[in-house]
């Protein structure tokens, strides 16, 4: 596939920006500045960058609990995102959602979800709306390998295939459902093996290769947009950190972790860009600096933002005061 240089550089920019954002979030959490739960997507940046490059603003995206990267890659305002993680009034969701429930309906982002496996039916409902409204919009449903074992997976994929809904199901297989390694929670070798049960395409691809992620997703998105129904994609990757920040991940094999860290998607793609002369080191450094500046600004914005007024506790329960 001939990908324009602009797009290649965009992949890199997205990946480094997400890496910087997530690293900073982990630091801020450890320092006690971010409350609650944080599930870091460090190491999974190529999936967010590759997948979100395939969709348009009006396309719908259902996310999970480890989705800061996808939010950023879909175009969410990082200042508001960081403020949301802090619980500030200026946050994407006015500080009421936090990391696990961050959403931006203006960008078609139907929300992260704290209930693993609850996103399938919601995203499939969004795809139903796209088909009902006869637009060319599609929906993406992202999820982890662990949550692929929830019952709504089956219900939603069955209906999506049955009704040829414009949706792409994307599994980020990062090796673990919390502490449980894939080989101990999955009956088949791959999550994508299950596609056969619904008569839809299913494929497993290296999720640390941004170009492979992009090309695979693009094909599935094109299929959905043309009215040919859903696909089940699985991108293999590795969760660098524990399930949540603060989880020491004692269940991980040290050697395996070491091997996966060497497969870091960012230097790998940087090497490709340099070797194929699609970017100079100076350009890469510039993108790194841009990412740093964006995240610095986001942290500053979040730190300086006010807490929500206590009256906000009572708003948005319904569309009106009851």
């Amino acid at each position: 596939m001939d990908i324009q240089k602009k797009q290649l550089l965009e992949f890199y920019q997205q990946m480094v920006t997400i890496r910087i954002f997530e690293s900073r979030v982990c630091e801020l959490f450890a320092a006690g500045q971010i409350p609650g739960f944080v599930h870091s997507s460090l190491g999974q940046e190529a999936i967010a960058a590759g997948v979100m490059a395939c969709v348009e603003k009006d396309d719908k995206v259902g996310l999970h609990h480890r989705s800061h990267g996808e939010m950023i890659a879909k175009g969410a305002d990082m200042n508001k995102m960081m403020a949301e993680l802090f619980g500030k009034a200026t946050g994407t969701c006015k500080g009421k959602g936090g990391s696990m429930h961050i959403a931006d309906m203006d960008l078609g982002i139907l929300g992260a979800n704290g209930i693993l496996g609850a996103g399938y039916a919601i995203a499939t409902g969004a795809a139903f709306a796209c088909q009902y409204n006869e637009t060319k919009d599609i929906a993406l449903c992202l999820f982890g390998d662990g949550q692929s074992n929830r019952g709504p997976f089956h219900e939603s994929l069955n209906v999506a295939a049955l009704w040829k809904l414009p949706i792409v199901f994307i599994c980020e297989n990062n090796g673990f459902g919390l502490s449980n390694p894939v080989k101990e929670h999955l009956a088949t070798d791959c999550v994508s093996d299950r596609a056969a049960a619904y008569g839809i395409p299913g494929v497993t691809v290296d999720g640390n290769d941004v170009l492979a992620v992009y090309e695979t997703t693009l094909e599935a998105v094109d299929r959905a947009r043309k009215g040919n129904g859903p696909s089940l994609l699985e991108f293999t990757t590795w969760r660098w950190h524990g399930h949540f920040e603060g989880d020491p991940a004692v269940y991980k094999d040290a050697q395996e972790q070491e091997e996966w860290l060497k497969k870091d998607p960012i230097p790998r793609f940087a090497k490709q860009l340099l070797e194929q002369k699609n970017a100079t080191q100076a350009e890469l450094d510039e993108m790194q600096a841009k990412g740093e500046a964006l995240v610095d600004a986001a942290v500053k914005f979040a730190e300086e933002s006010p807490w929500p007024d206590v009256s906000e506790l009572f708003t948005d329960v319904y569309d009106r005061q009851m």
Binding site: L110, T124, A126, A129, N133, E155, N158, V159
Partner: peptide
């Protein structure tokens, strides 16, 4: 189909989309 999770869950998604 007999899929209550889907029936109710899809309505959350479709209604959020208008």
């Amino acid at each position: 189909p007999i899929s209550e999770n889907f029936i109710v869950g899809h309505a959350v998604g479709s209604s959020a989309c208008g």
